[in-house]
Nucleic acid binder design. Structure first.
Lengths: 222, 222
DNA sequence: TTATAATATTATTAAATTGTAACCATATTA
DNA sequence: TAATATGGTTACAATTTAATAATATTATAA
């Protein structure tokens, strides 16, 4: 991975700006979000390597956002840091136990934040890297897939489905998991809907690397 | 790795004792050292998974110890946390940049320390969810069995059955036990069903390590 | 060694699951 | 507005999986 992407969610524009500036200086690509809901949206769109969440935000709190993200397979392993105005002990513990990697109390020294961010990435680098994705690229901005040197446009649902499978190549995604991620828990769609979308993807991409695991789900083999 | 080993180095016996007690409560194995030099000695002797270093110690400071450890290949990847009485910013940055994974300022809440320790280990052991040893691996996430360097996909029932046997290699699973686990208590299947599945697994994997124990059940020898 | 019980093997059938094409309502774009 | 693309449904075909039945083989005790 060339340049690391960091998503920052905070409702205070000043803090967003200061952190953004400093992290960009350090060589990171920075995306910002002013609320918890937008944070989740942008996370799905940009697939950041690290997410910095303010705990106190209007609407969803950072902890709620963290919990929600951790339940999506694509963000299971993403680094998450909390920022909080409260240096309340139980809140910090709650934050860490919701699956975050660190918890910083305001006022925050940007230099310390940067050191911590660097330390987290340093540690992550040492973890075994997952499978190389060969000649398979997904451009989430353009809804464009490149495979075998061929660029293909997919419809939104098709793209999201493929992107989900590609977020963990090799992992088998259960049909339920796919429904939850792409359609959401409250939408109910027919039994054959996933199949039909899978079929369209295979067709459009001339793709032989989506494997069906009967009775379980689908996976992407790259 | 069953029980994680933690080495704590601090010159204040009280702190050593408190931390040792709390981390042991949490299920960790704890080794203590009253000085930097002893910390290095004990680290080499016990090969801990995490080292907690007080910054201010007579003789070698924690930062010196960390630097020294990080230059030894065997501790290149070991988790290191600093404890410090100073909440001095530049000292914290220096600590993190010397290769530590975290930096906590005293007074330290033991509950927060434990949460941080847990968070670090959680991040570290994001290893693939697989069981087995030697050249036999079962990856539940990928629904894949690797044996003799060959990757094989099994049907669901076959996979579940093999995964069950592999969950305790060497243990003999009674036919009843297998039926309960794979088919559930209320489903009734014929007498030969298990055999047939076992056969398919042996066939597909070219596997000679499922042993039949006549009159009892089956086991997996790895 | 033989009788017997238990398991292995094979073929067959039933059931579950997925693939596919055609179709329609709706949203999007020209 | 017409033309087109999307997202979803349905009915049915195709495939795979799971269970059974019938028969062969093996292990074990008498």
């Amino acid at each position: 991975m060339e340049q690391k992407k960091i998503l920052i969610a905070d409702d205070e524009p000043d803090i967003l700006e200061i952190l953004q500036f400093n992290l960009q200086q350090e060589g990171y690509e920075v995306i910002t979000a002013p609320s918890g809901d937008e944070a989740i949206q942008k996370a799905r769109k940009h697939q950041p390597d690290l997410i910095i969440l303010d705990v106190m935000m209007p609407g969803k709190t950072g902890i709620e956002v963290c919990n929600q993200l951790r339940h999506m397979p694509e963000f299971e392993n993403t680094l998450i840091i909390f920022l909080s105005a409260m240096s309340d002990e139980s809140s910090e513990i709650k934050g860490l136990e919701s699956g975050a990697d660190d918890y910083l109390s305001k006022p925050i020294s940007t230099r310390i934040l940067i050191s911590k961010v660097n330390a987290l990435f340093r540690r992550l680098q040492k973890a075994p890297d997952s499978i190389g994705s060969g000649d398979f690229f997904i451009d989430r901005e353009k809804y464009l897939v490149t495979y075998n040197g061929k660029e293909t446009m997919l419809a939104r649902k098709e793209f999201e489905l493929l992107a989900l499978l590609a977020s963990k190549p090799g992992k088998v995604f259960l049909r339920n998991e796919i429904l939850d991620q792409i359609w959401g828990t409250d939408v109910i769609v027919g039994d054959r809907t996933i199949d039909v979308h899978i079929r369209k993807i295979r067709q459009k991409l001339d793709l032989d690397c989506i494997t069906t695991v009967k009775g379980v789900g689908y996976k992407l083999d790259i």
